[in-house]
Nucleic acid binder design. Structure first.
Ligand SMILES: [Mn+2]
Ligand SMILES: [Mn+2]
Ligand SMILES: [Zn+2]
Ligand SMILES: [Zn+2]
Lengths: 138, 138
DNA sequence: CTAGCCTGTGCAAAGATTTGCATCAACAAG
DNA sequence: CTTGTTGATGCAAATCTTTGCACAGGCTAG
């Protein structure tokens, strides 16, 4: 029940999204990764599940919209995905050499929404990523 | 002298980069834009200067590395570029409908570097972008 | 369980961005 | 001004990501 996949599936169902073999496989891969991964990387790790790369791109996008998966960005712009692991919205500190990453919980959500409201903006979201070179790669 | 293009050019020279007609044209376009623009958009605004799109991509990347241009990201992952306008590092609040943007000076640079150092990371950088729907587009 | 609706999928094509390589030209030295 | 070095450019191709469309299959109603 607290298994991230099971939880994700029930949320997807609640939101009216369909549960397919492909989506289950994609979530499976995501749950095994220990750092955020890209759509291509996810697809490469799908073993028997032969699922089209396009489907991986589209499914991950859906998962983010449904709030069951968190979206990040690599320094080169590549989008990466990971489970929220119960914490929901968060950020990452990613090594630009090896891709390893640490969770960063500091966030300016409130200040940013305040500023945005000041300019009359609505439906405010934000993306933040921190990059560096990890101890192993130094 | 305080003209952003002139200033950019002298910095590029200092850093050993060459000043070409193409680069001057790209900077020119950048100085006229009132929001951050992508490489493709920059290329589309180059008028007589017939310069290859690849050159725009590569030049903008160089400008960022040299610190004369600031890099941002749109919500869909597209990289966008703008002059620092004398303020250096900063962020943007961008309308996801029309692309208009406001400058955001709030920044967690110090906290983030502190956290990163805590994990033993070096050469720390970060990207942050805020998105919403502007008053005109609501 | 079955039928039907409508989302999700695969394939193909378009679009965006990066990379490789031969040639060109900025600029420093003489 | 002439020359040589080396970074910058353009073209072509590879790579990555999105989009269009017809068909397949999950899910709900009966
Ligand atoms: Mn945040
Ligand atoms: Mn900042
Ligand atoms: Zn590393
Ligand atoms: Zn707008």
């Amino acid at each position: 029940m607290s298994d991230p996949i099971t939880k994700a599936i029930s949320v997807l169902r609640e939101k009216g999204l369909r549960i397919t073999e492909q989506r289950k496989a994609i979530l499976e891969v995501l749950s095994k990764a220990d750092s955020p991964i890209s759509a291509e990387e996810n697809h490469a790790m799908l073993v028997a599940s032969q699922c089209d790369l396009v489907t991986v791109y589209r499914s991950l996008e859906q998962f983010v919209k449904a709030g069951v998966v968190e979206l990040g960005v690599r320094e080169n712009g590549t989008k990466v995905y990971c489970f929220g692991h119960g914490h929901g919205h968060h950020h990452h500190l990613t090594c630009r050499m090896c891709g390893d990453s640490e969770r960063v919980d500091v966030c300016m959500k409130n200040e940013l929404e305040e500023i945005a409201r000041g300019y009359g903006y609505q439906e405010v979201t934000h993306v933040m990523e921190v990059f560096g070179v990890c101890p192993s790669c130094s």
